[in-house]
Design a protein around this nucleic acid. Structure first.
Length: 266
DNA sequence: CATGTCGCCTGCGAGC
DNA sequence: TGCTCGCAGGCGACAT
């Protein structure tokens, strides 16, 4: 069992960093030599003006429309108080109030870059709507999912139908909606149910301060509480909370997936 | 353009 | 108990 920072975990960190960063200038910075992390030092001298989030990306904006774009990858942690004895410290920033921020990442799947004038590339450039925005509607979800015949789970992980869903919340949302994750064509009523489920599981994740399984800790080094509310993810071999059927596990397009063979239908 | 495959990383659990 | 081996997984590069 592992865990990955998804939207609720990144939002939890965003809320904790915001009051510590806004209005603070960067007086020094350092990074691991990998080009995945060296952009961390590019904004020395600039002042943070906003701490935003898009999907699983943190956008730390400074006063001249540049942004530090940070993705936590699999094992990334971003927190106040850089630990310089941590062998996995990949980047750090020192602020004009003397505080430090550290980015620690065991597996180095995380990534830091600088964006200019809100121009993005890669996944960030094609990200779907934020799940809590008015633009994320059942109709949008239906049309987005119908535009591709890939497995439902794969589409959700692509970040295009909606931003911020990873393996945990994809499984949880499919379970709540009663839809098999390998479905390729979804009906309008089921898209509406899935829309409700996505918003619900992500909102619950945020309200619980994120999910802690093994790797994830929030900006203050605390764990979240959402792992106590998971109905599906990581519970293969255990009984379904709704019907008692043993939950099944397989891979869909290479991603481990858990589902209830009774409650979730194609 | 849509889709599919591979590589990046390293700790750790399964199995012997 | 001690060891090896392969899994886990979001994203981006690349091929078709």
């Amino acid at each position: 069992m592992t865990s990955v920072p998804e939207l609720p975990e990144v939002e939890t960190i965003r809320r904790q960093l915001e009051p510590r960063l806004v209005g603070r200038a960067i007086v020094d910075a350092g990074s691991h030599p990998s080009p995945k992390f060296t952009p961390a030092i590019e904004l020395v001298g600039a002042t943070f003006e906003a701490v935003r989030r898009r999907g699983k990306f943190l956008l730390l904006g400074v006063d001249d429309d540049r942004e530090l774009v940070i993705h936590l990858g699999m094992t990334g942690r971003l927190r106040p108080g850089a630990d310089f004895d941590d062998p996995y410290l990949r980047a750090w920033w020192r602020l004009d109030d003397g505080a430090t921020i550290g980015f620690s990442d065991v597996r180095r799947f995380g990534r830091i870059r600088v964006a200019y004038n809100h121009r993005y590339d890669g996944t960030l450039a094609v990200l779907g709507p934020e799940p809590f925005d008015d633009s994320f509607t059942p109709d949008h979800l239906y049309r987005s999912l119908r535009s591709s015949s890939r497995h439902l789970k794969t589409q959700l992980l692509s970040q295009r139908p909606v931003a911020g869903v990873g393996n945990i919340y994809a499984d949880e949302a499919c379970f709540r909606a009663g839809i098999h994750p390998a479905t390729r064509r979804i009906s309008r009523p089921r898209a509406t149910a899935l829309h409700e489920a996505i918003v619900h599981v992500l909102r619950q994740g945020v309200d619980n301060g994120g999910t802690t399984l093994r790797d994830y800790l929030d900006a203050d080094g605390r764990s979240g509480a959402n792992q106590h509310h998971l109905h599906c993810y990581g519970r293969y071999g255990e009984p379904c909370v709704d019907c008692g059927t043993v939950l099944r596990r397989s891979t869909i397009d290479g991603r481990t997936t858990t589902w209830c063979p009774t409650c979730q239908t194609r």
